[in-house]
Structures are given as structure tokens and as C-alpha cells.
């Protein structure tokens, strides 16, 4: 009767899974693009170029990101800031900024290399195009607007997921000085347009007191969702 037992056992597995899927919480897949799954906080999506709260661009055209890029997909050309209408607080600004998304490996070394937190990554991953030229993102798409909203490559696409472009990945906060235990609770970066000061990541040391950091607006880091955007 061994074989009968094996057959019953095999059908039991599929039967249990079917009941769990129909009546329980066995369903694993979601009905993407209709339904989205919450991505991990440190998800590496496409890049954005940030601005300061006063609308100045953070990028200073130093090309450190291009130097750090292992895939050589970033092209930056800096330019002297015009004295009457400066684009960035520094001497120079990123005059041309292009990322070839066909070559990008989404390692975020550019984010780590950036001295001004100008380039960060978002949660957006839908970047398919119908020709290669469209895969080269220029400053038009990368730079966020003065109100903090980001531009989509194809804003008319009905599957374009704009809210994902506003979700910054938490990786920067883990690799910034604050990521080290002795800097816990102390943000090591500058505020961005539309977002303000991003809260520090909590729980690096497991010390509860370190989580009681109070943000300038009076809230604590635990009350604020880390990636909550206005």
C-alpha cells in the first residue's frame, strides 16, 4: 500500500495549498499592475537628483558619481554657476547629467560617492522602453521639481507609478555617518525640497534611547514613517 499512501500524500499537499489559497492567506502573487506590493525600505530603484529646500540643486558637478560607477553609465559635465542666478550653492553645478539605465546595475555606489546627497535612489523600477535612446535618462527626468515632485520618463503611460518616484530608499541613511552606531539618531545629511529633513534610521544599536530623536518639527523619528512624503 506504499504507493497509494504516497499518492494520497502528494494530493494532500496540493489540496491543502488550494484550500489555503482560496480561503486563507496562501496566495503569494499579487495582481500587479493593479495591486502593488510594499517594497523593502532599501529597495534600489531608479535615481533622482535632489534639490535643497530653497530650490537650489544639490549637484555640484564634481563627477564623483561618474568615477565611482562600476558600470560607467553616468555622464556628468559641470559648469561654473552664473553669478547672477546660481543653480547650486557651490561654485559649479551639474550642467549635463545623464544615466544610461541600460548599463546601470543599481549598486548605489554613486549615492555613496555623492558628497552632497544630490543623487539618491527611489522605489521605481518600471523603466522598460521601446528604444535604446529612451533608456538614457537626462536631467529632465532625473532632477526633481522645486516642489519636490519627480518627473516620469513616460508620464502619459497609464501604468506609470508616480508615488513610487517619491519614495526614497533608506540605503543612504544606513550608509551615511548616522548609520554607524555612535551616530545613531543624528541625521548626517541636508534637507531636501518637498521632503525636509529625512528622519534617521532607527535601531542600529538596539538602544531604545537612541530612537527618541526629536525632529525639528517636534515629532519623533518613531512617529514619522521614514519615507512618508508630503
Amino acid at each position: 500500500m506504499g504507493i497509494i499512501g504516497d499518492l494520497v500524500k502528494g494530493m494532500g499537499v496540493t489540496g491543502r495549498q488550494m484550500i489555503a489559497t482560496i480561503f486563507g492567506d496562501g496566495m503569494i502573487t499579487t495582481e500587479y499592475p493593479k495591486a502593488f506590493r510594499e517594497k523593502p525600505e532599501r529597495f534600489h530603484g531608479r535615481h533622482v537628483l535632489n534639490r535643497y529646500e530653497d530650490g537650489m540643486e544639490k549637484c555640484i558637478g564634481c563627477e564623483l558619481c561618474a568615477g565611482a560607477c562600476p558600470a560607467r553609465c553616468i555622464y556628468v559635465r559641470g559648469k561654473e554657476n552664473p553669478a547672477d542666478a546660481p543653480v547650486s550653492p557651490g561654485e559649479r553645478f551639474g550642467f549635463v547629467y545623464e544615466i544610461n539605465m541600460l548599463r546601470c546595475i543599481f549598486c548605489a555606489l554613486c549615492v555613496e560617492a555623492c558628497p552632497t546627497e544630490a543623487i539618491t535612489m527611489t522605489h521605481l523600477f518600471e523603466m522598460s522602453t521601446t528604444n535604446r535612446e529612451d533608456a538614457i535618462y537626462t536631467k529632465t527626468e532625473l532632477l526633481i521639481n522645486e516642489d519636490g515632485s519627480a518627473n516620469h520618463m513616460f508620464p502619459d503611460d497609464r501604468l506609470a507609478n508616480l508615488p513610487e518616484l517619491l519614495k526614497a530608499d533608506g540605503w543612504m541613511r544606513a550608509t551615511a555617518p548616522q548609520g554607524r552606531v555612535e551616530y545613531e539618531g543624528i541625521p548626517g545629511w541636508t534637507p531636501s525640497a518637498g521632503v525636509g529633513l529625512r528622519p534617521p534610521e532607527v535601531g542600529q544599536s538596539g538602544d531604545a534611547a537612541a530612537r527618541d530623536f526629536t525632529l525639528p518639527d517636534g515629532t519623533t523619528s518613531l512617529e514619522v514613517e521614514p519615507d512618508e512624503e508630503e
Binding site: 496566495m27 502573487t29 499579487t30
Partner: peptide
């Protein structure tokens, strides 16, 4: 649909 259910999938939707 049934095979999808048995494999924790949605199937055609």
C-alpha cells in the same frame, strides 16, 4: 484557476 490555486498563484485575471 485550480492549478493556480494549488500553486498559490492567482491565475488568469
Amino acid at each position: 484557476k485550480l492549478v493556480a490555486d494549488m500553486q498559490n498563484r492567482l491565475g488568469p485575471m
